[in-house]
Amino acid sequence: MNENEKKVIEEIIINTVKKLLVERDCPNRVVLGISNKHMHLTQEDIETLFGKGHTLTNLKDLKQPGQYAAKETVKVIGPKGSFDKVRILGPARPESQIEISLTDARTIGVDAPIHESGKLEGTPGIILEGPCGRIELKKGVMVALRHIHMPLDIAEKLNIKDKDYVSVETEGIRKTIFCNVLARVSEKFDYEMHLDTDEANAAGLNNNDYLKIIPNR
């Protein structure tokens, strides 16, 4: 084992211990994950873009159990511009969905609403282009509503139910309170808050920062 590998392992251990201590002693402290533009695709759309029988390749596991960043990327084409190499997150989903920031939406000329992930009604479509094909989606482009993935034990400690809304306070020179943060509660979730790049940059935040939950009364 070389020095770089040792440092990676030490960092993983330190971050894991820190996370466990925070959840035990301060359950209202949640770690932040910043979401860049990405997409979730159906298996049918994956095969149209990458070839019949193609399955996604796991590039990196994400914090949410079973979720991963795929090696595969796709070109996203809007009325006024495009983005190359937008990452797909796996595994395949029942419906295709593209999550971008408001800045991204304006850049490519798409009127993307702020929606809860998975709620596709009222969302616009877009063109996706892969190495083996092209798809014109009729819907699915959104700015994801800020949210927290919350396991059941943490939700019980904080008296928060699935679909409740909370406020979240940050620290630092750009101290901010984010209101209308959706709590998504499930025994399948790891404890993590998601903001998009616009929101995180405006508040001067980084991945793995800890934020304070303020339940709405």
Rank of each mutant, 00 (worst) to 15 (best):
T48R: 14
G133V: 09
Y210Q: 05
G118W: 08
I14R: 15
L182W: 05
A105R: 03
N58V: 15
M1W: 10
N4W: 10
I213H: 02
M150A: 04
P65M: 10
I214V: 08
S35M: 01
L49N: 08
P91A: 10
E129R: 09
E169A: 15
R217T: 09
I12R: 14
N36K: 15
V17N: 01
T170E: 06
P215S: 07
R93D: 10
F189N: 15
D209W: 00
H40A: 07
K161Q: 11
L56S: 12
P65G: 12
M1N: 11
K63A: 14
N207Y: 04
N15V: 06
I9K: 15
L20A: 14
I148K: 02
I13R: 12
G51I: 07
A92S: 15
E47A: 12
H147T: 06
F189Y: 15
S101W: 06
A203M: 00
I213C: 02
N36F: 12
S96H: 06
G130N: 00
I127W: 03
I77C: 05
N216G: 00
F178A: 08
S117P: 08
I160P: 03
N15Y: 03
M39K: 02
K6H: 07
A183G: 02
T107P: 00
A69I: 04
I9P: 03
K163Q: 14
L205I: 05
T197A: 07
T48S: 05
L41C: 12
L158P: 08
N206L: 13
A105G: 00
G122L: 08
P113D: 07
D198E: 08
I34R: 06
N36L: 13
D164P: 09
M39N: 06
D45L: 00
S186C: 10
H115I: 08
G51W: 01
K161A: 13
M193V: 09
N15E: 15
I108T: 02
I160G: 00
E10R: 11
G78L: 07
I154V: 15
I154R: 07
S117L: 11
E199D: 13
D45T: 08
E171W: 11
N207V: 04
T55V: 14
D25G: 03
H54T: 14
P79H: 03
E156N: 15
D45C: 05
D164G: 00
I98L: 15
D198F: 01
L49C: 01
E3N: 13
A112F: 04
A202F: 01
V30A: 11
Q97C: 04
T57M: 09
G118I: 11
H40G: 05
S101N: 04
I100V: 12
S117V: 11
L145A: 11
E23L: 14
Y165T: 14
I88Y: 04
E10M: 13
G125I: 01
S35D: 07
E121S: 13
E192K: 03
D153N: 14
G130H: 06
A105Q: 05
E171I: 11
F189G: 10
